[in-house]
Design a protein around this nucleic acid. Structure first.
Lengths: 198, 198
DNA sequence: ACCTTTCTGTAGCCGATTTTACATAAACCG
DNA sequence: CGGTTTATGTAAAATCGGCTACAGAAAGGT
């Protein structure tokens, strides 16, 4: 175990990453400026760069932390519920909780980067991979439901997964536009009607 | 009518505005840089500023042109269809046509500004107003359907309008992420299931 | 013809943003 | 306690964005 060498850091790196996540979440990759990030930690730019390398690298780490913590809850709820219907409802309700737990509203993975500046290409691609993973998780859960008889054999897990992923995107977007919890919850019942039809 | 004074403009302003719309649509307000806009018209910056005033003013004009042309088709289809169901289906299919008719994919009103930089506040607010108008159009059409017996009296036009507006947003996001026409069309049937339930 | 008006291209200003030199401070090691 | 290592704050470099001064060009008015 290598004893700590040199002057110790004046802040806890994990704590700082959570602050960075909060800033990136509410302002997006491009909206979050170095000044916002360093102010959130309470340090000067060189300390930020020494600890995280660059804005892009910090964003990547913050997104991974988001996936492992904030974003995991709705997906876990989907996984654990006894039926596909209950799972989807829990996932969407969890998404609403997430979308309302931040000043600006919405999901970091969906709204973190949208503009197409060359400087945002890598962060954008990182988020796109995360979204594809979310989609795959939903599809897997629906396939399991079909295989166990919870959904009829003619149900189309891939199509339904894209549809419910779309509902998550709608929740995020409308939360960003200032929708209330009631307004967001009103999206769930109409969305679940698609299960009866399938 | 005052005869044209001074040196005439070297390009047609309406034609130029369409080019600007194309650039703003595919790159967003912040992603579209002055160099992109002037290159699309084929002029130097001073000509752009003489004709349009500023990037923000040009964006506002481009958005208004988008609403009057590109965006009008799906809403007109919603209005003209004989039933609410047929209208919503036509609106969503029209949204898919729109979303696929641009390099980057998606709707300008939904994806044009997302980041929260202070410099984008006015453009963002302008788009938000446009979205509210879209939502109101859908709600009005559903109210009419309810009043004429096309939808049952217990149907909730405001809720359903928010839901189908959400589907449009999902179409835009997934188109921006590269979804195929087939993938986007697969969102429509599940969405229409909400009508049967209501 | 000459003046006024308006547009055009070159070239550059001005501010903002990410990132880094540099000197200094705070820890451990021998 | 001197030396090494790493972090910190000030301050600025490097870059890049929107925007504009200027001088010249192209039209109409008189």
């Amino acid at each position: 175990m290598p004893a700590a060498r040199g002057r110790p850091r004046s802040f806890d790196r994990g704590w700082a990453l959570q602050r960075l996540l909060d800033v990136f979440w509410s302002k997006g990759f491009e909206g979050a400026q170095i000044g916002d990030l360093t102010a959130a930690i309470g340090v000067a730019p060189p300390s930020f760069y020494a600890a995280f390398g660059s804005k892009e690298a910090a964003f990547r780490e913050a997104v991974d932390l988001y996936i492992a913590t904030v974003g995991a809850a709705p997906m876990q709820a989907l996984e654990d519920a006894p039926t596909a219907r209950a799972g989807l409802r829990a996932m969407l309700e969890g998404s609403i909780d997430v979308a309302l737990s931040n000043r600006s509203g919405g999901c970091l993975l969906i709204l973190g980067v949208v503009s197409s500046l060359p400087a945002s290409d890598n962060p954008r691609a990182h988020l796109l991979r995360a979204r594809r993973k979310t989609l795959a998780l939903i599809r897997d859960r629906l396939e399991r439901a079909r295989d166990t008889g919870d959904l009829p054999p003619e149900a189309d897990p891939a199509r339904l997964a894209a549809f419910y992923h779309g509902i998550m995107q709608a929740i995020s977007f409308q939360a960003r536009d200032g929708a209330s919890r009631e307004a967001l919850q009103a999206l769930i019942e109409p969305a679940l009607a698609a299960l009866r039809a399938a």
